[in-house]
């Protein structure tokens, strides 16, 4: 289990990175935290011929408030986000979710950008990005463009980024008045990839009516899945057990086309999705009626 030979670059400025990715195209792999890439290389399942180490680049690891968005640099360690008081205040869904991502030893290296760009359908952060409606700042020598979360994830380990593009940072909307979020997942063991996970973001108006809901699901499709039909059930309605149940049923039946694998069959995933969406929505609505606190 030793990684194959590769050409190694350790640039110190983002412009060098952009030049290298432009030059090498899909032959090159950016090395962020490496917590998914290096195991794949050790198994020799991934054989990038060029590796561009991003760990020496300054300025990609910042967490900053910009207007009504929290900007997180792509190379920000997951552990830093988890520990950030600012994150806890303005995007509590991230703080709530990160402890579910593997183990501290992995989060000490793993980066926010790496996880999002890797687009593993079983990863937590892509589903959270979907639920929150994050925006992705994607840069190349051609310039910077912004991709909405709904368009960013476009298949199995696949994103809307071109070969010459690099994820520079991600903007998460700051929690608005009347907005609540919640996350839960079922995994075999603490820190494992989830069998199913649910990230919920809801806005409830002063009359208690659900204005808007976004439900991000993980491990139930090619990538993170936005449960659009379930959200439709909730929109404009006053939450009740019955409403939540019917939204959850829509999520389990109509929003997903889950894969079966050795840990969970298709039917079990559908069933878990329904159960978990129900429970997570209930938790979120309970938070809303408590004035937003957990």
């Amino acid at each position: 289990m030793k990684p194959p030979v590769f050409e190694y670059h350790a640039p110190t400025h983002i412009d060098e990175v952009l030049e290298l990715v432009a030059q090498h195209g899909d032959e090159a792999k950016p090395l962020a935290g490496g917590q998914s890439l290096v195991p794949a290389m050790n198994f020799r399942l991934a054989r990038p011929s060029v590796l561009i180490d991003l760990n020496g680049i300054d300025g990609l690891g910042a967490i900053a408030l910009e207007g009504d968005e929290l900007r997180i640099g792509a190379m920000t360690r997951q552990r830093a986000v988890e520990r950030s008081d600012l994150v806890g205040e303005v995007t509590p869904l991230l703080s709530e979710t990160l402890p579910f991502v593997a183990h501290p030893q992995i989060r000490n290296r793993g980066t926010v950008g790496g996880s999002l760009a890797h687009a593993d359908p079983a990863a937590e952060l892509p589903a959270v990005a979907l639920a929150l409606g994050a925006r992705f700042f994607v840069r190349s020598q051609r310039g910077t463009r912004v991709v909405e979360a709904d368009a960013f994830f476009d298949g199995l380990f696949s994103t809307a980024m071109e070969d010459d593009e690099l994820l520079e940072n991600v903007a998460f909307p700051v929690l608005a008045d009347g907005q609540v979020t919640a996350f839960s997942e079922i995994s075999r063991r603490h820190g494992d990839y989830a069998l199913v996970g649910v990230a919920v973001s809801l806005s409830v108006d002063s009359s208690g009516c659900c204005e808007r809901a976004r439900i991000g699901l993980l491990s139930v499709g090619d990538g993170p899945v936005l449960a659009v039909r379930a959200a439709e059930v909730l929109a404009g309605e006053v939450p009740s057990d019955e409403l939540i149940r019917s939204a959850a049923a829509r999520a389990g039946h109509d929003d997903i086309d889950p894969p079966g694998d050795i840990h969970a069959s298709v039917d079990y995933r559908r069933h878990l999705t329904e159960v978990l969406v129900r429970r997570t929505l209930a938790a979120a609505f309970a938070r809303a009626s408590n004035g937003g606190s957990a």
């Binding site: 079922i186 075999r188 069998l195 840990h263 969970a264 069959s265 039917d267 079990y268 069933h271």
Partner: peptide, 11 residues
């Protein structure tokens, strides 16, 4: 007896 298997057996 994984949870998945318990689900299947129960079903």
């Amino acid at each position: 007896l994984s949870p998945n298997r318990l689900f299947e057996v129960s079903r």
